[in-house]
Structure formats: C-alpha cells, structure tokens
Design a protein around this nucleic acid. Sequence first.
DNA 1: CTCCCGATAT
DNA 2: ATATCAGGAG
Length: 216
Amino acid sequence: MLNKSQIALCLEEMEKMFPDAHCELHHTTPFELTIAVLLSAQCTDALVNKVTPALFAKYKTPEDYLSVSLEELQDDIRSIGLYRNKAKNIQKLAELVIKEYSGSIPQDRDELTKLPGVGRKTANVVVSVAFGVPAIAVDTHVERVSKRLGICRWKDSVLTVEETLMKKIPRHLWSATHHRLIFFGRYHCKAQNPNCRECPLLSLCREGKKRMKDKL
DNA sequence: CTCCCGATAT
DNA sequence: ATATCAGGAG
C-alpha cells in the first residue's frame, strides 16, 4: 500500500501529464451539470456531450422537463443508453427540485443524494464542480487507478476508496486530484491494455510492476 | 446481487 | 464478439 508521500509523488506526475484536467461534461449551470452527470452513468462523456446541446436548448428549467411526456424525453436521450431509468429519474428530479428546493439545485451533498438518479458519486461531482466544495468523486476511472497503484485494496468498496483518498490527500487538493485521477485513468491508465511500459508511475505502481513481470 | 442499455473501442 | 463507459436503484 502506498503511503502519503508516495501518493503525493503519483499526483505530481499526473499533474505533469494532465495539467489542465477538468470536468469534460458541457454545462452552463448547476442544474445542467446535474442532468449531464446523471446522464453520464455507464456511458462516455463524449456521448453525453453529443445530446446535451439539443437537450439543454429544448429544456431550460425543471418545469420544461415536466411539460413533455415520458416517451418524448426518452426519445431525446435514447442514444445515451439506460434511457428509461434516466428519463424517469429526470422528471422525478425536476418535480422534487420545484417542490422541495424552490426550483434550484441544492448545494449540500446529502440533499443532492435525495434526488432520484443522484448517488454519492454524482453528488460529489456537482458540489465540487458547480459549488467549489472539496470532494473526490469515485467513478470507474478513479476506482481502477487507485486500486492498480495500490492506494487502496482491490476488494475495497467505492466508499472506502473515497475515504482512503480523503484521508491521504490534503483537502485543498481533493477537487484537482479527482480530475487528474480521471484524466490519468481515461487517457493513460485505461481499463483495457494499459501502457505500463511507458508509464512514468511504473516504479510506484503495484499492478504495473506485476504486469511487467508477467509480460502483459 | 441484478437490472438497466446504446455507442464505441478492441 | 466482447469489454467498457464520470452509476444508481431495487
């Protein structure tokens, strides 16, 4: 398992590789960001960004999402996948935002989690990106990279991964770190065939050294 | 744990 | 053909 200073070294290397790591989901308001992140479950950011321009032009307020039938909203997001659940969640979310939060997305992580389709990961992205609250959203990339490097254990839950990262990384670096981990995972330490041979983190990486030994 | 699910990369 | 993608709910 990596200690704090080893993790700090990893983060420095990631910063060199991806100095401008940022949220890649297109949005202009906290409400749009929440919808975009909800849509991004089990689907690439690039695909979400293909539907949101037309979506956000058509639906600007929570009321707009409730002004059409469920079937029409499904059709507008069909190419994303999981569209039945997502369309239903968006309409319920819109209803709740109007009734319980007077039309605007709550800024509190635990309040956000009460919205349908919004779990801990999505809530962390929203508070971090839209409201500037330090948070580490653990998505598939952050989980994979943390486990490969040896920041946490393979059997750890996503919540344990998040807690470990928060414990071992200074709070003021949480949000920047979360984006660097995502870029590192998305563009370099990929799920399939990671290029460990040319990885600057190889000397620190548990999985990388193992893969080199096994000639993967 | 399973289900939801289309697009894309390998 | 199969794996994966900024997960969440039942």
